[in-house]
């Protein structure tokens, strides 16, 4: 078991699973702290994955791809805000609609723009290549994990630290927390909580968009229908379990990422694919159950 955990190939694959979860969960955390019950992360990730492929294909640059992913996700955040905050729709209903909208729009545009169904795969999709930094590869044990990953992985690590400072010290971060914890006080202070929540949703959308970009132009170079495959829901579980605090969020998504890459590894050992496919969800359920159980016991 220890051999498996220290295997460089295994370590190198952890960020592939961790990065999308972490980026999406950070987005979800911002909404959670702002008091927006956003369970539409799944749709925002999917939108980002598609927009990333569109951008990377037409501009020939993964950075344009990532940018368009962030913008497309942000647009979904604005749509969410319009229907939830301004028109007063229930957050759960709007989330479900956002998820369906993303599934519909991406498959529709897949046919309109690329004239294919199911999968779009082309050598012209300019994906991210691995970033090698001097010194990183030499770090014992963690070297293979830290070196040679997509730029979005490093971005996501920086964002965890930034998010911590953001919630603790930044004016907008504090306003976001106030919007979640005590919107009346925020209002009394002359700030419209819904405007703060709109900003939170936009940031959340952009982060989820980047999570999608990691899936479609960093992990692979293609778009597949519904390629978000439940990651948005796993990110929501991480957010719920940590109440949106950045560092705990990092560790729990790291745990999920390690389990995911482990199950990916054991697929090579002759397990039927369906069993390794369900691992991430079972692991999420197991962690969720264990922590909920522990919460309940510690409260009584």
């Amino acid at each position: 078991m220890l051999d498996l955990l220290l295997d460089p190939a295994f370590l190198a694959s952890v960020p592939r699973f961790l990065t999308p979860l972490l980026l999406a969960a950070l987005g979800g955390a911002i909404c959670e702290r702002a008091g927006v019950f956003n369970i539409g992360l799944e749709g925002m990730i999917l939108t980002g994955a598609f927009a990333a492929v569109v951008g990377a294909y037409f501009a020939g640059s993964p950075y344009v791809g990532a940018l368009s992913a962030a913008l497309a996700g942000l647009a979904m955040g604005v749509v969410f805000a319009e229907f939830n905050l301004r028109r007063g729709g229930d957050a759960i209903v709007v989330s479900i609609a956002i998820n369906l909208l993303a599934a519909g729009l991406t498959t529709y545009l897949l046919r309109v723009i690329f004239d294919v169904t199911g999968t779009f795969n082309s050598p012209d999709i300019a994906g991210f290549s691995a970033v090698h930094m001097p010194g990183l590869a030499g770090i014992p044990v963690l070297g293979p994990l830290l070196d040679g990953q997509s730029p979005l992985f490093y971005l996501s690590l920086i964002l965890v630290a930034l998010a911590h400072v953001f919630f603790a010290r930044h004016r907008l971060g504090l306003r976001i927390r106030a919007a979640g914890e005590n919107p009346a006080a925020l209002k009394a202070g002359g700030v419209n909580p819904d405007k703060v929540r709109l900003l939170a949703l936009m940031m959340c959308g952009a982060l989820c968009g980047l999570a999608g970009a990691q899936l479609s132009i960093a992990n692979v170079n293609l778009f597949v229908e519904n390629m978000s495959a439940g990651r948005g829901w796993i990110a929501i579980v991480a957010v719920l379990l940590t109440r949106g605090r950045p560092w705990p969020l990092f560790f729990i998504t790291l745990l999920f990422g390690v389990v995911d890459s482990l199950s990916f590894r054991v697929q090579g050992l002759g397990m039927p694919q369906q069993f390794t496919d369900m691992m991430p969800y079972l692991a999420t359920l197991a962690v969720l159950t264990a922590i909920s159980w522990w919460y309940r016991k510690s409260r009584t």
């Binding site: 729709g89 609609a97 369906l100 909208l101 599934a103 519909g104 529709y108 046919r111």
Partner: peptide
């Protein structure tokens, strides 16, 4: 493309169910 159905449903839900 028949996938337009999904978009239609989502848009209807957004506009109507939020009301």
């Amino acid at each position: 493309p028949k996938e337009i159905a999904l978009v239609m449903q989502a848009v209807i839900i957004l506009f109507v169910a939020s009301r």
